[in-house]
Design a protein around this nucleic acid. Structure first.
Lengths: 226, 226
DNA sequence: ACCCACGGTGCCCTCTTTGTTACCGAAATC
DNA sequence: GATTTCGGTAACAAAGAGGGCACCGTGGGT
């Protein structure tokens, strides 16, 4: 599930947008101030940021630049300012799009989809199948094969595997996995991820007790060897 | 110079936009019909396409989909339709942005820059890796290699190494390291840092008893040679 | 209503990692 | 050269982390 971070100080607008976007299938985190937004960004690393220009503690431009200084995450500015100068400034500050209030949820959702599609176009090298070891992942069909025979993965196992495949080689923390696979944003201590990693290993590893594909990064998380 | 393809049937608008964008430093090719636009696209492979929805011979949506079926080139739709439905349809057809007439050239130019910047960001997604000696630090993936083979660092060792890498060449005191790597703020006398530096040396140095990478600054701390 | 697959949790055992201590040797200082 | 200071090293104990297992609740299918 893709996650959005909505930084907007007006409670009414924030709630309305948040609900509309959750209906569109996104996991939405919210922040009411610039500092809270930046903190939430650091913690959750969302897939896209929605940013109001008028914030109580700092300018949206500053927030935009602060995020841009460390990340290439897509940013959409949402604001009441219809001035061309503001729009140009917002885009120059690193935003990818600029939408003026009142916001039509359908339109915003379409712009979010377009932007995320653009990002994914580049991320996924348009290769629908992924291989690692004797595992073949056909994302188009949602099927997984091991040495040619089809595996019967549950939905969670499949999503977990996709998440690993999307970041092949990189160490993923439990929090990252919880957020991206389950959509959780709380950071609780739980064996949830471990349990599912184990179940996934039982199905895709030759020797589940000596995993070669999904290896443990002790103290950090797990990692798919590429 | 980056090249744009402007597909627009109204001569006045086309000329005006074309001139404005050339002033912004782009090379602009023009087409007045959908078929001419597609032909020009095939011939010139521009860096970005500006597309009017109302064309004499075919719908802009069709043109958009036709281009998208063969290319991931960024597309901005320019149109008089302010309807949300049209906008959503345009973005779903594969466009990256949707601008309504009358077009403010400054705004269009800003959106073009934002979109091209987004594309370039991904083109240049070469991993930020750090090298020193035969050690390679891939921070994105949280992995460390020595002479091409992966090292198995513990969490603390990894963080310690990152701290050194962030201040390559600089002498870091034990207090600084305690503070940044461990989060301690008390200044106690202990061999804690030494012990971990040793463990790190055992893994990354060719001759741990004659360290070349992490050298001791006697009476002060340690330093990563760059 | 029943069953069963799946998702999620708690507990225990094992092994790794971490922080500490004691001791030793090297370097600086006198 | 003796002394003192500082870092290196090994050993050790405590804490931490993950694997494995059992178990429970739920929700869908029969």
């Amino acid at each position: 599930m893709e996650s959005l971070l909505l930084i907007e100080d007006d409670d009414g607008i924030r709630l309305a947008l948040s609900m509309a976007l959750e209906d569109e299938g996104y996991s939405v985190a919210e922040a009411g101030t610039g500092t809270a937004g930046l903190a939430a960004f650091e913690r959750q690393t969302p897939d896209l940021v929605l940013l109001d220009l008028r914030l109580p503690d700092m300018s949206g431009f500053e927030v935009c630049r602060a995020i841009r200084s460390t990340s290439i995450v897509p940013i959409i500015i949402i604001t009441a300012q219809t001035d061309t100068v503001d729009m140009v400034a917002g885009l120059e500050a690193g935003a990818d799009d600029y939408v003026t209030k009142p916001v039509v949820p359908k339109e915003l959702a379409a712009r979010i989809r377009a932007l995320l599609r653009r990002v994914h176009l580049h991320a996924a090298t348009s290769e629908p199948q992924v291989h690692f070891g004797d595992i073949e992942l056909r994302r188009e069909q949602g099927l997984v094969f091991k040495a040619g025979v089809e595996l019967n993965l549950t939905k969670t196992e499949y999503r977990l595997l996709c998440e690993f495949a999307d970041h092949a080689g990189a160490v993923l923390s439990r929090d990252q996995l919880l957020e991206h696979v389950w959509g959780y944003d709380y950071l609780g201590d739980s064996r949830l991820v471990d349990a599912h990693v184990r179940r996934l290993r039982l199905k895709i590893e030759d020797h589940p007790d000596d995993p070669q594909l999904i290896v443990t990064a002790r103290g950090v998380g797990y990692r798919l060897v590429s």
